[in-house]
Design a protein around this nucleic acid. Structure first.
Ligand SMILES: [Mn+2]
Ligand SMILES: [Mn+2]
Ligand SMILES: [Mn+2]
Ligand SMILES: [Mn+2]
Lengths: 217, 217
DNA sequence: ACTATTTTTTAGACAAGTCTAAAAAATAGT
DNA sequence: ACTATTTTTTAGACTTGTCTAAAAAATAGT
């Protein structure tokens, strides 16, 4: 039985090895976890003892199969709870991440599976992220293409947004950007990589950072 | 923001001061919490520092108004989640206490209130215990009379059972005893205080302990 | 009132998870 | 290849919540 802290480390290592390189460095992980590198070293030793990560001094870490399975179960719980909060309790999509950070640590696989059934086995969470099934399998075709990679005159549908920052969600809300929203790319500016889009007959400029945090199809 | 452990102590002090005396002794609390008395002393000092209990050395403790409010909020969450698990996820009433022990510590009063609304403001949990409202108020007419205090020939309805032990629930299930079940008291035996009841045309002997853990009206 | 017993507190320890400061290893620049 | 910089680890400390063993206070029995 893992502690919340151990679970959070597993989740962070998983996320980093998805987006960055396979092997995760101590400093990168310490930044993600908002702890000091020395704390990370301690934790990695503990997780390695439990065969959840493979770790060699000075060489960074990598999840074992066991560790990856565990991480996927936490992610599954996090995203199912987010769906529950939005679909059943009428929370806004910007409010649910923080609560799901707590709920993801509830220990009962029976609960997780019953919740999954209650929600009719959703495939994606409110931010477009795929939900792993009971066995940790999920389709990763949702959140592959960033808006920043779209070309001029493309007409695309928003299928996902980066999850986490309340301020980013407030910005999205202000622009009336949500899952399923259709946008057309009008222009791209090379001097700052910003993008001009057409949305509900309004023209909006999105900074590079924002256009990288929005996913389309 | 209290820790889970602090919250569990508050809940335990509340429960003991309801059923036993107003003032709760260190040893009694240590038994309930399954910790050593020395650990209790430490915790009481901490809770007193936070004005959640009034505590004088060697004199036991008592919840302050602030502490009582806090305890009631945790109990509210515990019982609402139990209703959710039984009503929405189809858990058995014997399975939900353990999971609710975890869920009761999720911190978001907005979540609690939305859950309350989603469940249509239930008044009692699956074991017949009253659910405090947003302000900590609840009617305590449900679980007042123990079956052991019923008289011969009384015909009563079961309105509550003691929550906690899985084995007790299994026994109840085997006897087909549930909330709303009607029983008639046939005989009471003085030598061991056991009770003979009629239930679904079957006669069952309940030990004193069991008849004290079943509440009727 | 004195002694024996029970209850409660104190003192000192430990594991988990974090920190700071210092040392060691790896990497990069010339 | 040598030095400077960055990364990572080690050493030692702190907090929370627990423990054991010993001391102190309260209670009970005669
Ligand atoms: Mn999230
Ligand atoms: Mn978390
Ligand atoms: Mn319960
Ligand atoms: Mn609890």
């Amino acid at each position: 039985m893992l502690t919340q802290s151990e679970e959070n480390y597993l989740k962070a290592i998983f996320a980093l090895s998805e987006q960055q390189t396979e092997i995760v460095s101590t400093n990168l992980l310490s930044e993600k976890m908002m702890t000091k590198p020395s704390s990370v070293t301690d934790m990695l030793r503990k997780l390695a003892d439990k065969s959840l990560v493979s770790y060699l001094k000075y060489q960074g870490c990598e999840l074992t199969d066991k560790g990856k399975d565990y991480a996927l179960q936490i992610i599954r719980k996090h995203r199912l709870w987010e769906v529950f909060l939005v679909e059943k309790l009428n929370f806004g999509w910007e409010e649910v991440h923080e609560i799901a950070e707590q709920l993801e640590h509830i220990k009962s696989s029976k609960l997780t599976d019953k919740l999954d059934a209650f929600l009719h086995y959703p495939k994606v969470d409110p931010h477009g992220d795929p939900i792993p099934d009971k066995n940790g399998n999920f389709s990763n075709d949702q959140k592959t293409k960033q808006l920043s990679f779209s070309n001029i005159n493309d007409e695309v549908v928003i299928t996902g947004v980066e999850d986490g920052s309340i301020e980013f969600f407030q910005f999205l809300k202000h622009c009336e950007i949500g899952l399923g929203t259709k946008v057309k790319i009008i222009a791209k500016y090379n001097f700052d990589q910003s993008v001009l889009i057409l949305l509900n007959e309004k023209e909006i400029v999105l900074s590079e950072l924002v256009s990288q945090k929005i996913y389309v199809q």
